[in-house]
Nucleic acid binder design. Structure first.
Ligand SMILES: NC(=O)c1ccc[n+]([C@@H]2O[C@H](COP(=O)([O-])OP(=O)(O)OC[C@H]3O[C@@H](n4cnc5c(N)ncnc54)[C@H](O)[C@@H]3O)[C@@H](O)[C@H]2O)c1
Ligand SMILES: NC(=O)c1ccc[n+]([C@@H]2O[C@H](COP(=O)([O-])OP(=O)(O)OC[C@H]3O[C@@H](n4cnc5c(N)ncnc54)[C@H](O)[C@@H]3O)[C@@H](O)[C@H]2O)c1
Lengths: 234, 234
DNA sequence: AAGCCTTTGTGAACGCATGCACAAAGTCGG
DNA sequence: CCGACTTTGTGCATGCGTTCACAAAGGCTT
């Protein structure tokens, strides 16, 4: 007796918006599991994840028919299915390039390991940083990049280098075989087809908040007059 | 002669997707300005920002008619208009709550000040951290939250506290008058209407990358068999 | 065994975002 | 001053994502 419906459902094409929410559901499910909860309805899980329950059900329906009508979803089983879909049943080796303020914080963070991401390599160009031990790992010189990536089987790299170094470093990690990049530098990276880039830009987040904040306070006040003052001339 | 078209255009309702891209355009424009470039076409700016040029033009058209046909956009003028729309012609005071690994990195980052965000207050609950000086600021005890927020006129808070503390801390900063929150803790925050929350979740970013990475390698391999093994029983 | 009750999975409608393609607008050389 | 050329601003079509609403499905009680 196989539990998963063999027909339909598994489209092979999961919408990007759904993929972005699966980790949120997964986190909510883990929290429920810790509390010993065995079964959860779409309504409850949606509330825990902060989304509409119809959206949740549609999202899950892309993975298969894993619920039971009149009951809900079995927490553990759903955890497994989402994990599998996201590729978290295997561990991923990750390299961090740039061990400055931000890189250090990331390297020392425990929340990655618990989700199947192992920080396997730390790389920096600064001789003063190379050799340092952070969270049990030794920082290697960036010249060993190719070697380290091959040795550790790394396919995901985190870039925490200055903006000016980001594209060159990106080119190198891509040339070394990395096909997924998480970029913290405030630049638009150019990569070949087949390489995924996701960016995290904290300044942008603050600017978006500022926009809405300004709206609450009555919208942008500036008129033409102000520009002339601002540029201080003409 | 006023430069900005007085009619239409300024809808007061800028699409959220556009708002999220304006900071990217702004960054590209700053880079161009540094190189001494005075005028830029939508095609060039779009390339620098990594978007489609039609999208760029439509985005900018929401702010007004700031281009010149046959020529393009004046870099400085566009910088000013976007800055004004985003609310960056004024400075914003920001509080950081939680000065652990991540909070420290943020507090020490220079890229915020240059975009009009001043880190005005650092708050933590740990007596060992309170009193410490980071980047010229003294870490205050979380008990002074209300007072500090009022004194510094803070409306934006960054939460870099553990997941378990995030909601309580959130409630407190909201009660103190903060109406915009940037949250790094991996939890869904509940806030009253009128308060904006943006989340940055690095684990989620990695999980999304893992999903696509797995796809490149041939899709999720698991079948029912594997679940039974995984739960190790039954 | 039958009917009631709960909850899923999805069809359909709607709204937002994207990108093409082009007319209108403006520049610039002659 | 004119005509050719460039580039903007936008109408329109298309596709994606969200939400409502409900029939079908399954469990549970009697
Ligand atoms: N710190 C923050 O809170 C923060 C916030 C937003 C964005 N960022 C961005 O994240 C990136 C890192 O920020 P940070 O504060 O850690 O900067 P940082 O200057 O403290 O660290 C950068 C590190 O990269 C290393 N590096 C430089 N060039 C390199 C190269 N070619 N190869 C390998 N390593 C190299 C440096 O030696 C340094 O250790 C920057 O692009 C920054 O704009 C940081
Ligand atoms: N460090 C990372 O790279 C990273 C990555 C992803 C997510 N996060 C998330 O960011 C948050 C912070 O991460 P971190 O690594 O800096 O953690 P951390 O434990 O190093 O720092 C947390 C800080 O918050 C303070 N704190 C705890 N309770 C508080 C309270 N009630 N009021 C005020 N301060 C309080 C602690 O004293 C500590 O200084 C966590 O939620 C974490 O899950 C961190």
């Amino acid at each position: 007796m196989t539990r998963r419906s063999t027909l339909g459902a598994r489209n092979r094409g999961i919408p990007e918006a759904t993929v972005a929410r699966l980790p949120v559901y997964l986190r909510a499910l883990h929290t429920l599991a810790e509390r010993g909860i065995v079964t959860v309805s779409s309504e409850e899980l949606a509330a825990a994840a902060g989304v509409n329950s119809a959206k949740l059900r549609k999202d899950l329906s892309h993975l298969g028919s894993y619920g039971t009508r009149g009951v809900g979803y079995e927490v553990q089983y759903l955890v497994y299915q989402i994990s599998r879909e996201l590729g978290l049943t295997q561990d991923w080796s990750v390299a961090i390039v740039g061990l400055g303020n931000l890189g250090r914080a990331l390297a020392g963070y425990g929340g990655f390991a618990s989700r199947g991401f192992r920080m396997s390599a730390l790389l920096d160009a600064d001789p003063a940083i190379v050799g340092e031990r952070i969270n049990g790992l030794t920082v290697e010189h960036i010249d060993k990049l190719e070697q380290v990536i091959a040795d550790c089987g790394i396919s995901i790299a985190v870039l925490a280098v200055p903006a000016s170094a980001a594209q060159p470093v990106c080119d190198r990690v891509v040339a070394s075989g990395v096909t997924s990049i998480l970029n913290f530098a405030p630049v638009v990276l150019t990569v070949p087809d087949g390489v995924d880039v996701r960016k995290v830009d904290l300044s942008i987040e603050l600017q978006i908040l500022a926009f809405h904040e300004q709206r609450k306070a009555g919208g942008p006040a500036g008129v033409e007059q102000e520009y002339l003052e601002a540029v201080d001339g003409s």
